[in-house]
Amino acid sequence: MHSSLFRTALVLGLLSAIGPFSIDMYLPALPQIGADLGAAETQVQMTITLYFLAFGVSQFLWGPMADAWGRKPPLVLGICLFALGSVGCAFAPSLGWLLAARFVQGIGGAAVGVVPRAVIRDRHTGVEATRLMALVMLVIAVSPMLAPLAGSAVLAFGGWRLIFGTLVAVAAMSLLVTLFALPETLAREDRVPVNLRSMARGCRVLLGDPAFLGLTFVGAFGFGSFFVFIASASFVYTEHFGLSPTGFSLAFAFNALGFFAASQAAAPLAQRFGLVRVMRLALGGFAGAALLLLGLAWAGFGTLAVLMGVLFVANAFLGLVMPATFVLALEEHGDIAGLASSLGGTLQMVTGGLLVTLLGPFFDGTPLPMVAGIALCAVLALGIGLLVLRRPLASLATGH
Score class of each variant (00 low, 15 high):
residue 156 A to C: 03
residue 237 Y to M: 15
residue 194 V to R: 01
residue 197 R to C: 04
residue 205 V to C: 03
residue 155 L to A: 07
residue 203 C to G: 03
residue 191 R to G: 07
residue 197 R to P: 00
residue 209 D to H: 14
residue 196 L to Y: 01
residue 212 F to C: 06
residue 220 A to F: 12
residue 167 L to C: 10
residue 228 V to R: 01
residue 228 V to N: 02
residue 227 F to P: 06
residue 207 L to Q: 01
residue 169 A to C: 13
residue 202 G to A: 15
residue 184 E to M: 11
residue 216 T to G: 14
residue 201 R to P: 00
residue 182 L to N: 06
residue 168 V to Q: 03
residue 149 L to K: 01
residue 239 E to F: 07
residue 161 R to Y: 05
residue 151 G to I: 01
residue 184 E to F: 13
residue 226 F to E: 07
residue 229 F to W: 13
residue 161 R to H: 14
residue 197 R to H: 13
residue 214 G to S: 10
residue 219 G to V: 05
residue 223 F to A: 03
residue 214 G to F: 13
residue 195 N to T: 13
residue 165 G to A: 06
residue 155 L to Y: 08
residue 217 F to C: 03
residue 183 P to D: 08
residue 205 V to Q: 12
residue 210 P to V: 10
residue 179 L to V: 10
residue 182 L to M: 11
residue 176 L to G: 11
residue 166 T to I: 15
residue 233 A to C: 11
residue 202 G to P: 01
residue 234 S to P: 13
residue 166 T to C: 15
residue 172 A to S: 09
residue 223 F to H: 12
residue 159 G to Q: 07
residue 203 C to D: 00
residue 207 L to D: 00
residue 205 V to D: 00
residue 184 E to A: 13
residue 206 L to N: 04
residue 231 A to K: 09
residue 181 A to D: 04
residue 171 A to I: 08
residue 150 A to C: 15
residue 161 R to G: 06
residue 229 F to H: 14
residue 244 S to D: 08
residue 238 T to H: 06
residue 166 T to R: 00
residue 189 E to P: 01
residue 199 M to A: 10
residue 187 A to M: 10
residue 243 L to M: 15
residue 190 D to A: 14
residue 232 S to K: 05
residue 160 W to S: 08
residue 230 I to C: 02
residue 240 H to E: 08
residue 222 G to C: 14
residue 218 V to Q: 04
residue 205 V to F: 00
residue 216 T to V: 12
residue 171 A to K: 04
residue 179 L to D: 00
residue 150 A to P: 02
residue 227 F to K: 01
residue 151 G to D: 06
residue 172 A to W: 08
residue 209 D to T: 08
residue 218 V to S: 06
residue 184 E to L: 11
residue 189 E to Y: 05
residue 234 S to L: 07
residue 196 L to C: 06
residue 204 R to S: 14
residue 148 P to A: 06
residue 158 G to R: 10
residue 183 P to F: 05
residue 171 A to N: 05
residue 242 G to H: 12
residue 154 V to R: 02
residue 174 S to M: 12
residue 216 T to M: 12
residue 150 A to I: 15
residue 228 V to F: 09
residue 174 S to R: 02
residue 203 C to R: 03
residue 222 G to E: 05
